[in-house]
Amino acid sequence: MSSFALDEQFYARLLELQQVDFALVELTLYLDTHPQDMAALQQYNYLVQQRQHIAAQYEQLYGPLLQFQSFSRYPWQWAESPWPWQV
């Protein structure tokens, strides 16, 4: 396993991704009980786009976020990304 030098940008991007994920979970729960709330649905869809953008930037710089659902550059990157306990 590699040793990682994680910079401030790594933590800033990871925090931004976690914040968007939290908001998406909350909006999902809200929309489960308020499916007709157009403003909440628009906010949800906007945040999904934001998350995709943030995740793509993160993965471009630091490697895949998930073992699946993420493309990998050559060579295989999953084993080279920081593990949760290394962050």
Rank of each mutant, 00 (worst) to 15 (best):
S72Y: 07
Q50Y: 08
Y44N: 03
A12V: 10
L27Y: 02
S70N: 06
W83L: 15
A40Q: 02
E80Y: 11
L47V: 03
L14F: 13
A39Y: 06
W78P: 01
L41D: 04
V25Q: 11
Q50G: 06
Y58D: 00
Q18S: 14
A39P: 01
W76L: 15
W78R: 08
L65C: 05
Q57K: 12
Q18W: 02
Y46I: 06
A79N: 05
A40Y: 03
V87C: 15
A56H: 07
D7E: 05
P75F: 12
A5I: 12
E8K: 14
A12E: 05
Y44L: 05
L24Q: 00
Q43M: 02
T28Q: 11
D21C: 12
S72K: 07
D32S: 07
H53A: 14
L29E: 11
A5S: 11
Q43V: 01
W76S: 13
W83H: 07
D37G: 08
L47T: 00
T33E: 13
L24K: 00
W83Q: 09
Q43F: 00
Q77G: 05
Q57A: 11
G63Y: 00
L41Y: 14
A23L: 11
D21G: 12
F68K: 09
V87N: 12
Q86Y: 09
V20F: 00
V87S: 15
P35D: 02
L61N: 02
Y62R: 03
F10I: 02
W85G: 02
Q9Y: 11
Y11Q: 05
M1H: 09
Q36A: 15
G63M: 00
P75K: 03
H53L: 15
V20Q: 00
L47C: 04
W85I: 03
Q43T: 03
E59Q: 12
P35I: 06
D32M: 12
F68H: 08
Q60G: 11
A56C: 09
Q9V: 10
Q9L: 13
L47E: 00
E16W: 01
Q60D: 07
F10Y: 15
L24M: 05
V87D: 12
Q49I: 12
Q57I: 07
Y11K: 05
Y62C: 03
S3K: 14
L61A: 15
A12Y: 10
S2P: 12
W78N: 04
Q9S: 13
A5G: 08
L17A: 07
D21A: 11
Q49G: 13
E16M: 14
Q9G: 06
P75H: 04
D7H: 09
W78G: 03
W83R: 11
Q57F: 04
I54T: 00
Y44G: 01
Q52E: 10
S72R: 08
Y30N: 04
L31R: 06
A56V: 04
